[in-house]
């Protein structure tokens, strides 16, 4: 997309400069031709290809790279001014974690984003897209960390004066350690 845009930009700007600076440039092509070629023939295939590719990619991301059989782990992320609370409905005995999200690496996780007050948005830039936590709704987003490690997360919908500080951390653990970490039995570092 980046290179394609660069090529299109150079093309249009090049044509502009040539038309202004080079005498008689482009006279040979009739005006209607110019418009049809540049206004329809050039952009239509590009846009069609891009749009449909994006549809496919969007479906893929929505499913979160899982085949039907895989099980996704649901985690509830509740935003409130100005912190995130994470709870694990499927892991019994797990306390609520504040501003720290544990996930298993190599497994798709489904975040259920909810809000107790205003709109927030859950976003871990390196793990996937974002989803708004809208009061009265529960929205779902699938993310996946392939490697264990730490990832930064940040609220990305303006939610008042504490918005800039509404950051959290994601820790992806090896599958074996995950349950213990969540229930608090495992001491990290």
């Amino acid at each position: 997309m980046l290179w394609g845009s660069f090529a299109l930009f150079t093309l249009v700007l090049g044509l502009f400069l040539a038309a202004v600076l080079v005498p008689r440039f482009g006279r040979g092509v009739s005006q209607t031709r110019w418009i049809i070629l540049g206004g329809l023939v050039l952009p239509l295939p590009v846009l069609t290809g891009l749009t449909f590719y994006a549809f496919a990619e969007g479906e893929f991301l929505l499913k979160g790279a899982v085949s039907e059989a895989d099980e996704v782990l649901e985690i509830r992320a509740t935003g409130r001014m100005w912190q995130w609370q994470f709870s694990y409905p499927s892991v019994s005995g797990s306390p609520v974690h504040t501003d720290l999200l544990h996930i298993p690496a190599g497994r798709t996780v489904e975040i259920i984003a909810e809000s107790e007050d205003v709109i927030h948005s859950f976003w871990v830039p390196r793990l996937g897209g974002k989803i708004d936590a809208v009061p009265g709704h529960s929205n779902r987003l699938r993310i996946r960390a392939d490697q264990p490690g730490r990832y930064g997360g940040i609220c990305s919908e303006y939610c008042g004066t504490g918005h800039a500080g509404m950051q959290f951390e994601v820790q992806a653990h090896r599958q074996e350690d995950f349950r213990e970490v969540v229930t608090g039995g495992f001491r990290h570092d």
Binding site: Q31, I35, G38, G39, L40, P43, L50, T51
Partner: peptide, 20 residues
Amino acid sequence: ALVAIPTAIQIFAWLATLAH
């Protein structure tokens, strides 16, 4: 995405005007 088409038509109409 489609709204780019009428924009492109205008841009190239202007380029055509300049060229001619």
